[in-house]
Design a binder for these strands. Structure first.
Lengths: 349, 349
DNA sequence: CTGTTAGCGCGTTCAG
DNA sequence: CTGAACGCGCTAACAG
């Protein structure tokens, strides 16, 4: 039913090979023939069959994007960026959302099913088991991790230890000592470096400042608004609540912020909060945060794949690792502890 | 390089035809042969080539999802839902993000490029030109619109007029008369019914209540946080500002809320605000809103496509239109105007 | 510069 | 119940 290359060939009075060459801009085609073929293809509405092309060339012109979520800020941003870059270069994007849950209780992800469908894969901080990673490697496809890194595979991410340190140092410099940390899932996946590193940064900064860390101040928030809320509730219930909180993600910070206010705890008068991301709504909340360039990470990841897909690309170079800069954005959710200044509404909200 | 059906056939000592039948559960294969083949396929790690299958059957087992954004709440939710449902049924999802901008200034979308790649298409309230729509129809593929509807094509959406009416009536019933409306883009696309309908609902409710509508109270917010903020600024600058605002989307409502508070206008004491969506963060903001079941819309849309893809499906039935229910969720951003009751902090934030 | 000939990997008749 | 043979639409040698 669809228009095939043969239809075009017949109509143009040439062979299918010539049509193929003409349409793809290959050399060895007279300008006249090329123009003629192009015209006919156009008004016949000819579109090459992807499957046939793939079968013949072995390349799918499709990149798989594996992600655990699409609705969360980081992932949505990253997907949008990756898709844009890829589509611009003529690649299709196959979206693969891994069912939620840790790698233990979700259905196993079988990278093999990607084998015949994509030329490369971008993995957005998905917690994968060692088995899955091995299978992924066995595909021998260009693979890039975004927001995390795995030995031997390309990656684009930020220095999450620096993130934790930056946030914590900001609070320390304001005079805080009792600084809590709301992180991801303590029983979560192993191959998910961001939360672990951010915590490490927090600990490192605390230690460097000679501050003892109370284990009670290290609570899980699961990277969700609601999780952040619960975490904050837990912290406020302590005999000696923190004067400052470092939340490993803005969404958790929002929850924490809301919970604090609801509990009548004034931010930043009685409690300072720092997040990570610089979410679209962080400014609205007046949230101090460590900004990470998510879209940039997406773009860079796509670029790495594209480059690895180039015919000239040697398939066995050392995997590239791109580390992007982060930056502390100070807003109104942080201040020095126990200031005796008038507690006016310093927050916009 | 990949394992082909022939490798399996050779190893099993049968023909490729038998392998094909055995693996796909077709009849006319002895139980023994079937088991044998299955085992060998498994330990050879055989995965049928999608392209080859497609070429042979004419079906791609892929559904295209066309969306203008992935990072905005509605779209992210819908994409996640559609993807989940589709993948569960063995379909791949090809993500196609249409560059931002109205259909006038973005690069034209050529549905033809989908022809050889997908079996069906889900369009998420993307503003399409008539030309694009026609081209889409010409594909003669099952097509479903989510969040909007187009004559002759399937759709899943909510009654946006009812949405506008519901929100407005809530405000009217509280005693408001000067009710503003923050909508989408006045110069925006035509085939994008949601904003138009929501406004119509607002007007209709106002008229039904015998309230005159001041054109100055109808301002654009572009469905973004920042747009909502600007809109609110504009409204507050009026000689006679509104006592209530109906924002056509929660993200705009957030912006409006923040702007109002920043301007020192107490919500809901001096100003009531209603949104639409019931965004994940609406509860945090205490935002009264008209909830719409986005994920459900995504699931239903996927189901419609799946059903139309069934071999038994007659290709020329009338297009199905699914209309889902909405519901007003009253929170703390709305109250009666000019109440003289103590203005305590009634909002959590 | 162009046409011919082979496949790419699978599904699908049609014979056995 | 099973196999041989052909075709899906296109690209890639290889001739001319």
């Amino acid at each position: 039913m669809p228009v095939t290359i043969e239809d075009v060939a017949l109509r143009a009075g040439v062979s299918t090979a010539t049509v193929s060459r003409a349409l793809r801009g290959l050399p060895h085609v007279s300008a006249a023939t090329r123009a003629q073929v192009a015209r006919i293809a156009l008004d016949l509405g000819y579109v090459p069959s992807k499957s046939a092309t793939n079968l013949a060339t072995g390349r799918t012109h499709t990149v798989g994007v594996v992600t655990p979520h699409v609705a969360r800020w980081f992932f949505a941003q990253a997907i949008e960026a990756v898709e844009g870059e890829l589509r611009e270069q003529g690649y299709d994007v196959l979206l693969l959302v891994l069912p939620p849950g840790t790698e233990v209780d979700r259905p196993p992800f079988d990278p093999e099913e990607l084998r015949q469908r994509v030329d490369a894969v971008a993995v957005l901080t998905v917690p994968l088991t060692g088995t899955e990673l091995d299978a992924l490697r066995r595909l021998r496809l260009p693979i890039v991790f975004v927001g995390g890194s795995v030995p031997g595979l390309m990656s684009v991410r930020i220095d999450d230890i620096a993130v934790g340190r930056l946030a914590t140092e900001h609070l320390l410099s304001l005079g805080h000592r009792r600084i809590a940390h709301i992180n991801g899932d303590p029983y979560g996946p192993l191959n998910f470096t961001a939360p672990v590193d951010r915590r490490a940064g927090w600990l490192s900064a605390m230690r460097a400042a000679g501050v003892e860390v109370d284990p009670q101040l290290d609570v899980p928030g699961f990277f969700t608004v609601e999780g952040g809320r619960q975490a904050m509730r837990q912290l406020l219930a302590l005999d000696e609540p923190p004067t400052a909180v470092f939340a490993a993600g803005d969404e958790m910070a929002f929850g924490a912020l809301a919970e604090a206010r609801e509990a009548g705890v004034h931010v930043p008068g009685e409690l300072s909060i720092v997040g990570v991301d610089d979410h679209d709504m962080s400014a609205l909340w007046g949230l101090t945060t460590v900004r990470q360039p998510v879209r940039e990470q997406g773009r860079r990841a796509a670029a790495l794949l594209l480059q690895a897909l180039l015919p000239t690309a040697a398939s066995s170079r050392p995997a590239e690792h791109v580390l992007l800069e982060v930056e502390l954005v100070a807003r109104s959710s942080t201040a020095s502890p126990r200031t005796e200044t008038t507690v006016t509404e310093s927050l916009p909200l």
